[in-house]
Simulated assay, not measured.
Amino acid sequence: MSDTEHPDFADEAAYIHKAYARLDQSREAAKSITDNVESREGGTHQARYERDVLADKVRSRLEDLDIGDQSLIFGRIDQAEGDHFHIGRVAVFDEDRNPMVVDWRAPIAEPFYRATGRQTMGLSRRRHYITRYRELLGIEDEYFTGEGGERTGLKGERTLVAALEEGRTGRLGDIVGTIQGEQDEIIRAPLAGAVIVQGGPGTGKTVVALHRAAYLLYSHRFPLAGQGVMVIGPNRLFLTYIEQVLPSLGESGVELSVLGDFVPNARVRGNDPVHIARVKGDLRMIDVMRRAVRQRQRPLR
């Protein structure tokens, strides 16, 4: 059976088009509010302050809704009780404020990434969509019988292969539609404390860390957005490589920096003597650094 012969293909394609239409309407509504707010002048100090706050919030929402050429919907979960939810990049609601698309970071979306044959998390089916821009190309279904039969291989294999076969652009892209269970555990780990992601080159450490930043900004927006989130990279080339990931996930307010930004006038003037370099490279420095970080940690306000 070809992809377009799937019995639900036409209905799902129509649903995706309808969700995009609602996204466009929401974006136009936000833009209209922004234009209206920015056109106002004068008023009391309090009125101007409230106007600026509203304008900032609407502009932020407008940025969240601008997903460019990225796929809006990439999956669906069917619960054993009968409810189903479409999982996507940003939340979209219909005219009655019912969810058409659930944000991938919402708690209800977690089973899309975590459910297995042994731990179904209440699912009867998980569906992956293969899309290009706004067009549905294929559907891949996984069924959960609840009989304890563990599945082998990766979840959404065809979707993952399709993502890997996409042409490279020289920029790091998001993996929001193909996150695997082990990666999702890191992304959704509790906020408190430091999370260290270790792995060899090319294992996805950077992209998982960026998705974690997007998740934390969604689930802990009040403390984090007010105090700011910063991604520190080794050099400018690296920052250019990753700069599109967070905006594609609906987070555009994160600052990207290199260590040199903290001491802009400092220059390397020499090398450490051998005995000092040996101390700095000793594995025991890990404990020293761990204590230093712990002593300097402060709780979120």
Score class of each variant (00 low, 15 high):
Gln70Thr: 07
Gly149Gln: 12
His86Asn: 10
Ile242His: 04
Ile67Ser: 01
Glu150Cys: 00
Thr203Leu: 13
Arg151Tyr: 11
Met100Ala: 04
Phe144Lys: 08
Lys155Pro: 02
Tyr241Ser: 04
Thr152Asp: 10
Val176Asp: 03
Leu160His: 01
Glu243Tyr: 07
Arg114Gly: 00
Leu62Tyr: 13
Tyr241Ala: 04
Glu135Gly: 01
Glu95Pro: 00
Asp56Pro: 00
Arg97Lys: 12
Gly226Glu: 14
Arg221Leu: 03
Thr116Lys: 10
Glu157Asn: 02
Glu140Val: 07
Gly122Phe: 09
Trp104Pro: 03
Leu136Asn: 04
Pro107Lys: 10
Tyr215Met: 01
Tyr133Ala: 10
Met285Ala: 03
Gln25Trp: 09
Gly146Asp: 06
Ala225Trp: 06
Leu164Arg: 14
Leu23Thr: 02
Asp56His: 03
Thr4Val: 12
Pro234Glu: 07
Ala115His: 04
Ser257His: 13
His211Asn: 14
Arg89Gly: 01
Glu255Gly: 03
Arg48Pro: 00
Asp64Gly: 02
Asp64Asn: 07
Arg269Lys: 10
Glu12Asp: 10
Ala109Trp: 10
Asp141Leu: 06
Phe144Met: 09
Leu259Cys: 11
Met121Ser: 09
Gly42His: 03
Arg125Gln: 11
Glu50Ile: 07
Thr34Asn: 08
Glu166Ser: 04
Asp64His: 08
Gly156Thr: 11
His17Leu: 12
Pro247Glu: 12
Pro273Asp: 14
Arg212Thr: 10
Thr240Lys: 08
Asp94Ile: 08
Val176Gln: 02
Val279Ile: 14
Leu300His: 09
Gln119Leu: 13
Gly177Arg: 05
Ala21Trp: 09
Ser124Gly: 14
Arg125Asp: 05
Val288Asp: 02
Glu166Arg: 14
Gly42Pro: 05
Asp11His: 05
Leu54His: 02
Val92His: 06
Leu191Asn: 08
Glu243Gln: 15
Val254Gln: 11
His211Gly: 07
Leu210Tyr: 08
Glu166Ile: 06
Val231Trp: 04
Ile87Thr: 03
Gly75Lys: 07
Pro99Ser: 11
Val231Leu: 10
Glu38Ser: 11
Arg278Asn: 10
Tyr49Asp: 02
Ala214Val: 13
Gln180Met: 10
Gln79Asn: 07
Val208Met: 13
Leu300Arg: 07
Leu54Ile: 07
Ala55Tyr: 03
Val90Leu: 04
Gln25Ile: 09
Met1Leu: 04
Pro190Arg: 14
Phe238Trp: 02
Arg278Ser: 14
Gly177Phe: 05
Val195Arg: 15
Gln119Thr: 15
Met100His: 02
Val263Pro: 01
Ala29Pro: 00
Asp141Asn: 05
Phe222Asp: 15
Asn36Glu: 11
Lys155Gly: 03
Phe9Tyr: 14
Gly170Gln: 08
Gln183Asn: 12
Glu81Ser: 14
Val268Cys: 06
Arg296Ser: 06
Leu246Met: 06
Thr120Cys: 11
Arg59Gly: 05
Asp24Asn: 09
Pro247Asp: 13
Met121Gln: 14
Ala194Glu: 12
Ile33Trp: 00
Val231Arg: 06
Val231His: 09
Arg126Val: 08
Gln295His: 02
Ala192Ile: 10
Gly153Val: 04
Phe144Val: 09
Gly181Leu: 13
Arg284Thr: 11
Glu251Phe: 11
His220Trp: 07
